[in-house]
Design a protein around this nucleic acid. Structure first.
Lengths: 213, 213
DNA sequence: GTCTATAAAGAGATAGAC
DNA sequence: GTCTATCTCTTTATAGAC
């Protein structure tokens, strides 16, 4: 029965609107829904067919909003990094000591990725699926952000707030290790809330897990 | 000229063998080459066409060795986890104190993933592309391994070697964060060698990055 | 802004010769 | 164990009606 209507084909506009989250236009739902799909299946394994179904749209209608599937990935990656960089720059302006700036950066990183895990997970893991030119653009943003964090790590070392027997580059790599793998297991409905994760990450990174305490 | 021979089509067996790494049969090269391709492109974006080209084989010839593309992924994930678990169990038998066992597990984890980054990165990141039944099998192995590490963390807490103001589960999550994101950036030709990475990871996890030192 | 219909390319996999 | 040739299905994307 109505097997040929699986795509929502033939629905009238009013019905489609009723099926949507209240008030969100197709244009507004496009990126979040794409990010969700790309995180669940991976970019390459995600079809425009399935994205359209989730939006209650016909496959073809997607192409009124975007020129290609890759556009979606590019916009997700760009937006993710623009948001992360904006948060980081706000922290750096606001905080006055190297230690407070570094702690603030760790907080804002975890806050950002847990608040929109689909978008940030897609950026971090699916970036490689972009064509060379666009991948390069996104990598420049990402390198800018990571250099910004590494710079604060270096400042904190010189202020005596971080150990100096590892170079700033290596500390930055291990810090991003500690922060980024979270995207592979974090669930907003899980039993670890973002603030707990922030507290623990700060303690483990700054004080370590050793000792009885 | 000879555009139709791009796949190595028409080559005689002796020529194909000469093009191979000395002594390695197709069967032996299959998994490593697949893991390399899957790590570079992602499983879904990897074609059997390209895998065959890298092996100097015709597409069809792959199917003499495996029944499906997914078989390759399944065997890579299984082998990765069997190796990691075997190393971990050897450490647990060998070491006598909770602290030595935990440190040994961290060493063996980093040693394993850096020694065969293609296989372990594919297991960690492409596991989700398996069909439900096989994904379940692999997840059981992975859960077994992670439970094993979490158990040693718990023992180390009770022995006073690890802080007890975080539960073992959370410490395990953060430890795997610290260890696993490495697969996204590690290069065997990079300027950080596995032993340096082990030393730094142990120091940061156990002592933390804070303090002047 | 969304639809029907379809084009064009690429994918995984198989049959059967050698 | 590898080849040539081909099947079938799915994919991204477009043309043109409404």
């Amino acid at each position: 029965m109505n097997a040929h209507r699986q795509d929502g084909a033939g629905r009238r506009g009013s019905e489609r609107q009723a099926a949507r989250a209240a008030g969100a236009s197709t244009a507004e739902r496009l990126l979040p829904e794409a990010a969700k799909l790309f995180r669940e299946r991976g970019y390459a394994a995600s079809s425009t067919r399935e994205l359209a179904e989730r939006l209650n749209l016909n496959k073809a209608s997607l192409y009124y909003h975007v020129e290609s599937k890759e556009d979606l990935l590019y916009e997700i990656c760009s937006k993710s990094l623009r948001d992360v960089i904006a948060s980081a720059e706000a922290v750096i302006e606001r905080e006055t000591s190297p230690k407070a700036r570094l702690e603030g950066l760790i907080r804002s990183h975890i806050t950002a990725i847990t608040a929109d895990i689909d978008m940030h997970a897609t950026m971090l893991l699916e970036l490689r699926s972009l064509s060379p030119g666009r991948r390069h653009d996104v990598m420049q943003l990402r390198n800018f952000y990571e250099a910004l964090v590494e710079h604060e790590i270096s400042d904190a070392q010189h202020a005596g707030d971080l150990r100096s027997d590892c170079d700033a580059r290596s500390l930055a790599l291990l810090l991003f290790n500690l922060l980024n793998w979270t995207i592979t297991w974090y669930r907003s409905d899980g039993d670890l809330d973002p603030n707990e994760l922030i507290d623990m990450s700060l303690r483990i990174f700054l004080e370590g897990a050793g000792g009885p305490r």
